[in-house]
């Protein structure tokens, strides 16, 4: 399988007419507010270094104004960086010529937007095949492919509706189908589910996870919602004021928040769902009767333990061999949020 990882290296973005003039000052540590007040330039991103793994979901999380939407737009260069590199398959996207960039956007990336950004004058099917129509795929083939993906996201029978006849959730399904129809290796999702109400959001997350299990795309997912980040993200990077303040797996972030800001964030998290049994297991001794597969969440383990009225369980790998064990006490200990950081 091709390597579809993306590496962002030393990326800076300063908004304003002469952004490049202030790079050195930013490197020397001028604050965002000072740059804005004294020089009228806005610091968007500062020294971003993220390795986004191939065929995984990389979440970029941050509150509004943290630069996360700016960040994702550098991957398909909807925003020009001030300096820095975005490397994909050995090429720096930031150095591509216009025609190379067009080709890259058409064939390698697809994007889903917070406000859906469907074309209001086109029917659902014509929206879905928009991307491959731009590629020059023939109408017949394009329709066939679009129908396939519309059906995969559960929109059979809506092909000839116009977007404004659909609910928000359904519109975003069209957005997702449009991106998937492109058959690109990279899927960019800019707060794709943020505008949806909670139940529908859960629904869409489930659809995305199911699809990802067979598609194995490199997904860059932007969100301001930590629960969403933890549910979807194989890796998470947290942005604040244009800087990455922590990156790692969800579990790493919940267990070892880098600073008070992040620990504030993670204290409301349901730790039982994030932390895996592997993290807290002790070496295997006399194997208990109950077995729990590796990679299970603490919540799952707690339920198993109480259901079978046991106080300890063996953790088994895929072949069924015991690789460690956990006790009920350890599970509950880890699930409770520490009182202070």
């Amino acid at each position: 399988m091709a390597d579809n990882s993306i590496e962002v290296k030393g990326l800076y973005k300063i908004f304003g007419p002469h952004g490049e003039k202030y790079i050195q000052m930013v490197k020397d540590g001028i604050s965002k507010d000072e740059l804005n007040a004294k020089y009228g330039h806005v610091l968007g991103l500062k020294d971003i270094n993220i390795k986004m793994p191939s065929a995984k979901i990389q979440v970029i999380m941050g509150l509004s104004g943290s630069g996360k939407s700016t960040m994702i737009r550098h991957i398909n260069r909807l925003i020009e960086p001030t300096i820095g590199e975005v490397i994909y398959q050995g090429h720096d996207i930031c150095k591509m010529s216009k025609s190379e960039l067009l080709k890259f956007r058409r064939h390698k990336t697809a994007m889903v937007f917070q406000k859906f950004a469907l074309l209001p004058h086109r029917t659902v099917i014509d929206n879905t095949l928009f991307g491959i129509e731009l590629q020059g795929v023939s109408r017949g083939e394009a329709e066939e492919r679009a129908r396939h993906w519309l059906s995969r996201v559960g929109l059979d029978g809506f092909e000839d509706n116009y977007p404004n006849q659909l609910s928000g959730g359904m519109q975003q399904r069209v957005g997702l189908a449009r991106a998937l129809t492109n058959d690109a290796d990279i899927l960019l999702m800019d707060e794709a589910f943020s505008a949806l109400d909670p139940l529908i959001r859960m629904d869409m997350q489930t659809i995305l996870l199911e699809l990802q299990e067979e598609l194995h795309k490199t997904i860059v997912f932007i969100t301001h919602d930590l629960d969403e980040a933890l549910r979807l993200g194989d890796r998470i990077a947290i942005l604040r004021d244009g800087e990455v303040i922590q990156q790692g797996t969800g579990q790493e972030i919940v267990l070892h928040p880098a600073d008070a800001y992040i620990s504030d964030f993670v204290k409301e998290v349901n730790r039982g769902r994030v932390i895996k049994v592997d993290t807290i297991m002790s070496p295997a001794t006399t194997p208990p009767t109950l077995q729990i597969p590796t990679g299970s969440s603490l919540e799952f383990a707690a339920k198993k333990l109480t259901d079978s009225n046991e106080t300890a369980a063996a953790i088994t790998d895929t072949s069924g061999a015991a690789i460690g064990e956990i006790s009920m006490k350890a599970v509950i200990n880890a699930m409770v949020t520490p009182a202070t950081y």
């Binding site: 398909n76 909807l78 890259f104 064939h107 994007m111 937007f113 950004a117 928009f130 731009l134 960019l188």
Partner: peptide
């Protein structure tokens, strides 16, 4: 922006 993102 969507049109740009899809390489129009």
């Amino acid at each position: 922006e969507a049109a740009d993102a899809f390489g129009a």
